[in-house]
Amino acid sequence: MNSVDPTIFLILLQDGIVNGAIYALLALSLVLVFAVTRVVLIPQGEFVAYGALTYATLGAGRVPGSVFLLCALGIAACGYGFWAERRTLDLSATLRLLGETILLPAAVLVLTLWLAPQRAGIAVEAFLALLIVAPMAPYLYRIAFQPMAEASVLVLLIAAVGVHLAMVGLGLVFFGPEGSRGDAFSGATYTLGALTVPGQALWIVGATLLIMAALALFFGLTLRGKALRATAVNRLGARLVGIPTAQSGRLAFALAGCIGALSGVLIAPLTTVYYDSGFLIGLKGFVAAIVGGLVSYPAALVAALAVGIGESFSSFYASAFKEVIVFGAIVPVLLARSLLAAPEAEEE
């Protein structure tokens, strides 16, 4: 191995931290979703890819196909919702369901058709991309997971893989096989000694910190956040004290969708994203989340940074085997977790 040039070292470190920040965001949302719903959210990467590609398409002044997918999912979620709640539906619940699943996507569709051709600016486009992609997550929860919310973790995981498979295929339909890049939030670069820091990198790290702070406040101070935490600790107990657990699940998915889409918008300017790029990105978030056993936020954060930095160094020294190294590393981690876990629990 060649000796490490300090400049290269710093550049790799910087790359690693920026990637690690994204993985950290994804890991956070994966831990959140798993804790609340027990779903291992394999399709999280697709929200990233959808977010990036939607943002890039808007940036090119075109209407992204994902907005139509949003409408279709909304309609399907509406159907599922009516079926699931057919015995308990009253007027206000009906109106809420219609608003959530029909009115919202319709409004987003109108907004997109109006704003997309006129290049409304980066901030508006980023926000619009979030509006298009994020609500898909709670709709998917209604359609795929809510009907079997009580199934085992394993069955939910297989279902999550199914959702991932379908979303990659739909991504190909709506975005095509070509990759895209989005516009940077900031074209500025800052020089820090031997290091050149692009403005986008600062945006990413800043946004990550901001979201973490917001999540911490949400969980610590608001009733909704506390309800989510209660659901995570004990679903049945939460329901007994009047917390609607299905709603908690949708909220967790909505947060995950927001974080996923935002991560996509943030990385779109840094790398070319393809319809199927999300899976590998999401999986790295997973590696981090699993280090914390899918329950610990701080462990996931530290692990995410380690994954990012490890990835950036292995891509420098053995670029072809980057993925082999990153995913190979997960097996010993899983093994350690399994051995640490209480062995007496009988699986079913």
Binding site: V40, S152, L154, L157, V287, I330, V331, L334, S338, E347
Partner: peptide, 13 residues
């Protein structure tokens, strides 16, 4: 030695 969903995730990896 992996239990349940950890095994499934490891197989994906």
């Amino acid at each position: 030695r992996l239990s349940g969903h950890y095994l499934a995730l490891a197989t994906i990896a």
